[in-house]
Write a protein that binds this DNA or RNA. Sequence first.
DNA 1: AAGTCGGGGTA
DNA 2: TACCCAGACTT
Length: 338
Amino acid sequence: MDIGQSIVTWFESQGRDLPWRDTRDPYRIWIAEVILQQTRIAQGIKYFYRFVERFPDVQTLASAHQDEVLKYWEGLGYYSRARNLHAAAKQVVEKYEGKFPQHYTELQKLRGIGPYTARAIGSFAFGNQTGVIDGNVLRVMSRVLGDFSPVNQQSTRKKFQEIIDQWVKNVDSRNFNNGIMDIGSVVCTPTQPGCLICPLLDHCKGYKEGMVHLLPFKEKKTDRKIKHYHFYLISNTRGEVVIRQRPAKGLWGGLWEIPNQKVSKEEWEEKKSRLAGEFFHQMKHVFTHFDMMINVFLVSPQEYDLKPAEQFISKDKIHIFAFSKAVLKIFDKWQNTD
DNA sequence: AAGTCGGGGTA
DNA sequence: TACCCAGACTT
């Protein structure tokens, strides 16, 4: 049996049943694929249900306000996904009359849809005969091929894309793509892979050569940096707190926050507020590319002059706005110490 | 090609 | 800690 058929056969008996697999609606498949970018299924599944319930079709999403779209994304991370999702919905409504293009080369022109997502929608919604390559597939392929090319390099992606397009040629692409991703996440796991129950064992050069535990090979990434910040909880006796909206792009783009500023490591370690107030709390917020060290201060509103973009909002209304997890943690700590 | 962009689970 | 997760966009 060739490898494509092995994957499809395995999927038909062992594949997982997921809520976006019982439809060919490109809209729902699109939403699921974007939510799952760099996100585990266990984390994304609740967001998927809530999102498609509130925005059941592309017209509803296109006509929504971005603030509400971000609210439904709150806590999920990579917020440009939500902004691009919103922009792409408008593209589909305005330029494609509400109907998704049916080929991945066209789909990839939409905001937030790259090589993986375009092929995923193309395959799952429209049956395009092309293979998808995500983190799971990179791992499976590098092991099956026994290939030590760095998987985080463009040339390797291109080579793997050509190979997987051959693998999928004579089988159902939906079952093939779902199957190879399931094998990656359930059997061919990063540590302790289940080689002895793997349907690709007979095809696996990495296993034959005893190299599975060394694959996939990645080039070392640059070391993470540390940045220091002061955050300010500015609240009055009426239980109101100062918030403001972040710029549309960049880190936490479009989300709301409490006033804060970057400070030097030395100033951060002194735990001394630049505004009149007292030290409240210390925490670390971890990003992919840096650690954010945070001091939180309680600041009295009498000595604080409100800037134009800032506003006092009562505590029982902050749930209307979308905040980053860092600010939500600060609010939570604050609430539980009152 | 390298850097930016979240948050959570796991060893 | 460090790595990984149904990656894409910017520079």
